[in-house]
Write a protein that binds this DNA or RNA. Structure first.
Length: 870
RNA sequence: GGGCGCAUAGCUCAGCUGGGAGAGCGCCUGCCUUACAAGCAGGAUGUCAUAGGUUCAAGUCCUAUUGUGCCCACCA
């Protein structure tokens, strides 16, 4: 027997059992079809947040469903080394011990990071387990595992050999806080109020000046031109002349370029190719020199003359002051502009010229574009496809080198003797050009996304041709947040196409954000995050999982309220108690001698099986969960279980066993459907319910059964339900307490209805609190004091002891009549509409006609009742 | 500057390819009916943002407007 209340504390025990018995394991099996998902590898620095909980619950539901459906289901878990995050974390920790990267040196530092990883890197996987996720943990991978590192090497070398990876001096995004380059995707543009400084430079050989405006005075020492629009007649006469940049005493030309907008500012722009992407392009077009005036830490360097060593802010102030002293400062305005910042640390990004490694993207992007356009790659919302295409069609080369130590080190070696560069998987002994042994390895590591781009196949053994790879690749579906569409999804797609010749997955599901009560993102800075494990420990992981899924849309935003957990918790409590009750009834002697109501619930269950399976196949998990809830709570518990109670309580009843069989069958089926959503509670009950199978996890998913389709019985029960509701309604209205048993007279319009009420008599009485049901075909001799109500096929009379207030009855009947008249008018209106009759599908017309007959009959009865009151 | 999403009951949201407005919470009424008061029964509540259009039929499709949120982008 089950305990009185469900104890979520049992969840961890159950999980251990599943692990011990290896239920999560997947291995190539020629007799089964594969179904695989790779987990979006969480950072080893991460702790579980609601986004993870939601994202992985979705994956677990899909995996558990497919596993039950007989697929060899692999959910590949693992973690990401998270280059910057981890390095920053470890540096912070070392700082408390008085250590720095420089003191330790590369090797010792990396040892410290590995130590840190060993200690803290497993936190998130432990948390995932607590949520019940059925990953194949035996296959857990880490992006810096040996095998995965081999994959990185292989990819790097192959792309290099195909000239798709190159080293070049280009303008890159520099984070002076993190002391590394970052990719375009990592730059977040934020609107800010900026000073817009107007200056003028003296035109050489004249006593005139040319005025311009800039938001970045500190880069003025790097100016190598002033530019105007070629169409701008105001400045035609100056083109070709030069101006002098005061503090560095440099003469720079005045050039004409389309880039300049005549209408903005003064129509003159200072060109600083070393520190601005646009200026860089202008510079290229005009062959301007590039001057880098900045150090890696964001201070100005020797090219900035007197300002060397100053940080950006003080340099700006000082330059403005000095320009003012020279009489060259005109004014300062305030404007709004967008400033690039680093998505991790928020520091302002500095565009700088640096020698870095890049992936040439154009050619790699093309197949990825085609994959979507051809329909081979699908997103759960079309709009993501548009965003995806827009990004790929405007893609720029990917800067992949990082000035970090934690990560995959670039396999390039430089000869100190002849400057020759070798790219190789194995460390070369000597320069293959001059034989010198003075080789130096590139100091840089790769962007952390370079390795995660390979995740769908590197985790399965690639570059080795493994059985796993052959069987499980491509994976079926990817579930992730839309915030990493560019970082990860796009890169997996082109990597998979490039190296596996196959898309890594055909379906991508983007899940939405979990927001706080006020609709804000949960974030560390706001400290408004709710920890999933705190919820799981309080309410159970099942409750949290169900809450995150039920009734929600996959990609919609969702606000998280503690109060809203109550509904899921209450539902699971209902499941628990219903099971507890039924377990008290079950015996060994069930048989399949079924009554009408048994067939009704079986038929409804059968429909549910079909619905839920279809919804899951369509990834409409929120709908699937809600349908199960509604069926279980409403139809099964509140109707069916109540209906059969009279049969259960009467041990002599011949039909008792049919009810027991049905209860058990429906309960088991419902538990199975529910299992992917709430694995723990369903397993607990399942194990008590039967002894043949050792787990619900590997039991067969229910399928639609033609034998359980009982439309006639469904109709019959609906008629009884309508009658029960009508009686309850009257009882409530007349304030008849539930304890007060009443007599009901059912006057049936036809034989069929009479038979139905006769068959259903016992539970009809039970559900409507009646001690006596009289079924007949005419209304002769019914006391005038009886309250009556019309339902389809019958008029129900409720003789009450209390005096009837005829006036009130008349009002009630009048209301009913009005309502029926309205309905009838609508139906008749439709049917007399020529367009409808001509164009609407036949089944709809038939439906309307059926309704018309029903309403007419009922209306007639209501009128009769009204007349009888007079 | 471009692109996208959202506006439905007091609150939070569902409503798939167009065919009589839904759920949960909250609220009101009555119930300790021997599985469950985390429960049971009954009830009230909506010009589906606004204005046009397509259609026999529009919350659902099209256009515009308003409000709101997000993404992308080099206007110094």
């Amino acid at each position: 027997m089950l305990e009185k209340n469900y104890d979520p504390g049992l969840e961890t025990e159950l999980y251990d059992r599943w692990m011990e018995r290896g239920y999560f394991r997947a291995k190539p099996n020629p007799d089964k079809k594969p179904f695989s998902i790779v987990i979006p590898p969480p950072n080893i620095t991460g702790i579980l947040h609601m986004g993870h909980a939601l994202n992985n619950t979705i994956q677990d539901i899909l995996i558990r469903t497919k596993r039950m459906q007989g697929y060899e289901a692999l959910w590949q878990p693992g973690t990401d080394h998270a280059a910057i995050s981890t390095e920053v974390r470890v540096i912070q920790k070392l700082a408390t011990e008085g250590l720095t990267k420089d003191i330790l040196g590369r090797e010792a530092f990396l040892e410290k990071v590995w130590e840190w990883k060993e200690e803290y890197g497993g936190t998130i996987t432990r948390q995932l387990k607590r949520m019940g996720f059925s990953c194949d943990w035996d296959r857990e991978r880490f992006t810096m595992d040996e095998g995965l590192s081999d994959a990185v090497l292989e990819v790097f070398i192959r792309l290099y050999e195909e000239n798709k990876i190159y080293r070049g001096e280009k303008l890159i995004n520099w984070c002076s806080e993190c002391q590394t380059t970052i990719s375009d995707a990592e730059v977040v543009h934020k609107e800010s109020d900026s000073g817009f400084y107007h200056f003028k430079y003296p035109i050489v050989g004249t006593d005139q000046f040319l005025s311009f405006a800039t938001t970045r005075p500190e880069t003025m020492p790097g100016d190598t031109a002033l530019a105007v629009n070629p169409e701008d007649e105001r400045y035609h006469r100056y083109i070709g002349k030069t101006v002098k940049v005061p503090f560095v005493e440099r003469e720079i030309p005045i050039i004409a370029d389309e880039y300049v907008e005549a209408g903005f500012g003064t129509g003159v722009v200072k060109i600083t190719p070393g520190h601005d992407p646009n200026d860089f392009e202008v510079g290229e077009r005009h062959g301007l020199p590039i001057i880098n005036i900045m150090n890696d830490d964001g201070t100005l360097n020797e090219n900035a003359g007197n300002y060397v060593g100053m940080d950006r802010k003080s340099a700006r102030e000082r330059i403005v002051r000095e320009m003012d002293e020279l009489g060259l400062f005109i004014k300062k305005e305030q404007i709004k502009n967008n400033v690039g910042t680093h998505d991790r640390c928020g520091d302002v990004i500095e565009p700088l010229i640096k020698m870095q490694w890049f992936v040439r993207m154009k050619e790699l992007a093309e197949p990825a574009v085609d994959a979507y356009k051809s329909g081979a790659l699908r997103f759960n919302r079309e709009r993501y496809g548009k965003i995806y295409l827009h990004w790929l069609e405007n893609i720029k080369d990917w800067c992949i080198s990082r000035q970090l130590w934690w990560g995959h080190r670039i396999p390039a070696y430089y000869c100190d003797n002849c400057n020759h560069m070798i790219v190789a998987g194995d460390i070369p002994n000597s320069c293959d050009k001059c034989n010198s042994t003075n080789l130096r390895r590139d100091e840089d590591t790769l962007d952390t996304w370079f390795s995660s781009a390979l995740w769908p196949f590197s985790t399965l053994g690639w570059p080795k041709q493994t059985e796993d790879l052959d069987y499980f690749y491509p994976t079926n579906v990817l579930v992730t947040g839309s915030d990493i569409l560019f970082f990860w999804v796009v890169r997996m797609v082109f990597s998979g196409l490039k190296f596996m010749d196959k898309l890594p997955f055909s379906d991508v599901l983007f899940n939405g954000l979990v927001l706080d009560e006020q609709g804000r993102k949960m974030s560390k800075s706001l400290d408004n995050g709710i920890e999933p494990l705190e919820v799981a420990n309080k309410y159970g992981a099942d409750t949290l999982r169900l809450k995150l899924i039920s009734g929600t849309t996959l990609d919609g935003e969702m606000r998280f309220y503690w109060e809203r957990l109550d509904h899921s918790r209450n539902f699971l409590n209902k499941v628990w108690n219903a099971s507890r009750f039924l377990l008290m009834q079950f015996s060994e002697e069930e048989d399949k001698n079924l009554s009408t109501e048994d067939k009704w619930i079986l038929s409804r269950m059968n429909d549910l099986v079909k619905d839920v399976t279809e919804k899951i196949d369509d990834y409409e998990l929120g709908m699937a969960a809600q349908k199960i809830e509604n069926f279980f709570w409403d139809e099964f518990c509140d109707w069916y279980v109540e209906m059969v109670k009279p049969r259960l309580y009467d041990k002599e009843n011949k039909s008792r066993n049919g009810a027991l069989w049905t209860l058990k069958h429906v309960l088991t089926t419902a538990l199975k459907l529910l299992h992917p959503f709430t694995p723990f509670i369903t397993e607990t009950i399942f194990l008590k319910l039967q002894s043949e199978e050792e787990t619900i996890m590997l039991s067969a998913w229910p399928t639609y059964d033609e034998q359980l389709h009982f439309p006639a019985e469904v109709k019959k029960i609906q008629q009884i339900q309508e009658a029960v509701k009508a009686i309850r309604n009257i009882r409530a209205e007349k304030q008849v307490p539930p304890s007060k048993k009443v007599k009901i007279i059912v006057v049936c319009a036809d034989e069929e209805t009479a038979n139905n009420f006769t068959d259903s008599q016992s539970f009809f009485a039970f559900l409507s609190g009646a001690e006596n049901i009289e079924i007949r075909k005419n209304a002769d001799g019914i006391p005038e004091t009886a309250v009556s109500v019309v339902t389809s096929g019958a008029v129900l009379y409720l003789p009450l002891d209390t005096l009837i207030d005829f006036e009130k009855e008349r009002v009630r009947l009048e209301k009913e009549r009005k309502k029926l008249e309205q309905e009838l008018a609508r139906v008749e209106g439709k049917l007399s509409n020529e367009g409808f009759v001509k164009k609407a599908p036949p089944h709809l017309i038939a439906e309307e006609e059926e309704k018309r007959e029903k309403y007419r009959a009922m209306l007639k009865k209501v009128e009769e009742q009204t007349n009888s009151l007079l």
